[in-house]
Design a protein around this nucleic acid. Structure first.
Lengths: 208, 208
DNA sequence: GGCGAAACTAAGCAAGCGCTTAGTCAAGTT
DNA sequence: AACTTGACTAAGCGCTTGCTTAGTTTCGCC
């Protein structure tokens, strides 16, 4: 033992490895569907077409799978948000674009979104801390847009932080109720209406 | 055996029985904290000061405990809502009161609220169906208020159903992030600000 | 064609799970 | 005093869990 590196799974599983991808998809399906603790490693393995032990070739533990899924999901969400924010010409545009984009993401990627939003507490303390950093970046994007809108006079908001939280609540909850084929609702229609609702929340003068 | 009634738990556990109350509290704590599947019956029993077998004197199964908690929680929420709706003089008042009250409830009873909103899928299909009925009654209260506000011209809303869902999303998400002592936020301050935010969502002319 | 490494499986271990069984004990009831 | 009833526990059953171990197969490389 001593200084020999104990045989850990590669810290960043290769995304171009087809077996890893299948495992990601299998775990995402299962976690989103039944929750982390109700999902068994045997379930994940068989969905991916592997024996129970096959999982541990690519991931150190069941929690590691949840963490990687959660991390990749957060990064994807954050990048989608940041891109939408950068393209906008004004706080009003920015808020609408960002909430619109985020709502669409929560619908289109509702499995990953559900894991990101609701399985957080089952991560280890260390992994919670790491993911929390990413989450704060997302919150900060929205909060900054609202602060800018208030500064420019476009928005009428009492409590910037609380309003940002409310706008995010709107969007996050999509992951709770949305599933494909629900009541003539599509990711696109959700994106449209939630962008508009967010503008209402901040009392934007100009309506899109 | 034959036709003798198999010893089932009384279908409705007595709420005035102190041991039952302790079990309810223990299970609510545990489920809210760690989720249904991560909670063990031994954990519930020991929090309630009982041996592992003591739980089964009062409840038929772990799922039965979740169901009773979920049912009682839904009924309490629905009744609180309906009372708030009845007292209001106008749709504007009604919406503000109802969302305000519901938001307060989600903060004050955040443990029960979390179970009600996020442990639903771990109920048996039959129990899901029963709880869903109660949930639809809650949705209907909010939807009716918005429809009335649109009819009276107080609200400016494109899609009544979608807007009702959004208002409820706002409130439901409180159960995800709220915990006592968080950032100078109290159930009362949440109630205040969420009542106002709901009015913004429906484009109410009159602001409270 | 011999070798090392990587991917994978068959088998199974130790621990923990929900729940049951058999029994104790205290408080009525007759 | 004899019996019933209801709340509770000690012990543990049968099963499932996350994960490991020991071994097989496949494949690129010299």
């Amino acid at each position: 033992m001593l200084s020999t590196v104990t045989a850990q799974t590669p810290s960043l599983p290769a995304h171009d490895n087809p077996t890893v991808v299948r495992l990601f998809e299998a775990a995402a399906d299962a976690f989103a569907d039944k929750g982390f603790h109700a999902t068994t490693t045997r379930d994940i393995a068989s969905r991916a077409g592997l024996s129970p032990a096959g999982v541990y070739v690519h991931f150190a533990s069941k929690e590691d799978l949840l963490f990687q899924l959660s991390r990749v999901g957060h990064v994807a969400a954050r990048d989608a948000l940041a891109a939408a924010a950068d393209e906008a010409a004004s706080p009003t545009d920015a808020l609408q674009e960002v909430i619109s984009e985020f709502a669409r993401w929560h619908a289109e990627q509702h499995q990953i979104a559900r894991i990101v939003q609701y399985e957080f507490r089952h991560l280890s303390p260390d992994h919670q801390r790491e993911v929390l950093t990413l989450r704060r970046e997302i919150d900060a994007v929205v909060e900054r847009i609202i602060a800018e809108g208030v500064a420019s006079g476009e928005f009428d908001v009492e409590d910037t932080r609380a309003t940002a939280l409310a706008a995010l609540s709107l969007v996050v909850d999509v992951a709770r109720w949305y599933h494909p084929g629900i009541k003539a609702t599509t990711p696109e229609s959700i994106a449209q209406s939630y962008g508009a609702l967010a503008l209402r929340l901040v009392g934007a003068r100009r309506r899109a």
